[in-house]
Write a protein that binds this DNA or RNA. Structure first.
Lengths: 158, 158
DNA sequence: GTTGACCTTGAAGTGGGCTCCAAGGTTTAA
DNA sequence: TTAAACCTTGGAGCCCACTTCAAGGTCAAC
């Protein structure tokens, strides 16, 4: 029906709606080299082929994997050139897994520290402490901190 | 010995070295309301009391807990006014724990997806696929994705 | 023929936590 | 006395992935 120059070409707003991102984001992806410059209508409107939606889905998938746009661009490049992306993809993924493990570890320790602090705080009916002093269970704890660099009351809070 | 106006007052560089942050960061904390404006020497140099080191340690501790500077400023405010900080601290912490749980959950799922992908990629001696197609185990997988919105080969990558 | 929804561009803004810079003044050690 | 190493200030720059804006052009419906 629209068969003359492009079948089912999508304007930027249509693609945006189809994949659930803003038109601005799509134009940004283009500037960033993630989307190739699409054909234009006589009036200069972007006309995306339907496959652009797949490409954006791919981008979104990569983002969900925690990759940043520059990395995704690399992946798309090898995908486009027809070279097997497995090699770069795999090293990218492995690198990212290592980072992720570090982050998970950090957050897990963080979480238990927070939990410990919150539990300690809870029900510790501390009277107003001296200004400049942290209160929880027995404000004496704080004094020990300032001197020897260790503290018993508040994990991490020093 | 230096007993006249301030005992053991620290210049910004000294404090910076003592606590392991940059002088710029310290001045930034001051602008951000985390450190009160310190006394000045006749020449206008900042002169911090030794307790400033504790304060910065406190800030660092809070940062390690994943709090942002604005939240830390709130905590310091109540700490300073002598009001028991437990209430705001506890709700801050609980809120942060919930956020952290969400994040941990997200990252954990991410991790297993990445792992699955990397494993699948590894040793899948895929020949160069068609440009615009993602390769791994049997490039047919990709086709299914584009049509029905589900895919079997690559978790999350769509 | 006019309203309103769409599209174009380049440029600037956002947030968070700094870092870096220029152009000066001060202090200290040799 | 002079050089190096510190300090001061305000302001700009950085990263990232956008978003917002201004000032227009285009298109479909009524």
């Amino acid at each position: 029906m629209t068969g003359l120059q492009a079948p089912h070409a999508l304007k930027v707003g249509e693609l945006a709606k189809a994949v659930g991102v803003s038109t601005d984001a799509l134009r940004y992806y283009e500037r960033a080299g993630l989307l190739p410059p699409p054909d234009r209508s006589p009036a200069g409107y972007r006309l995306y082929p339907p496959s652009a939606a797949d490409r954006v889905h791919f981008i979104q998938g990569c983002q969900r994997l925690g990759l940043r746009l520059a990395e995704i661009a690399d992946l798309l490049d090898v995908r486009d050139t027809g070279q097997c992306p497995c090699e770069p993809a795999e090293s990218l993924l492995r690198r990212r897994i290592v980072e992720l493990d570090r982050e998970l570890d950090r957050l897990t320790r963080l979480r238990s520290d927070l939990q410990a602090m919150a539990d300690q705080l809870h029900g510790a009916d501390c009277p107003d402490p001296d200004p400049g002093t942290w209160c929880p269970p027995g404000s004496k704890n704080m004094k020990e901190v300032t001197d020897d660099g260790h503290q018993k009351g508040l994990p991490l809070l020093r």
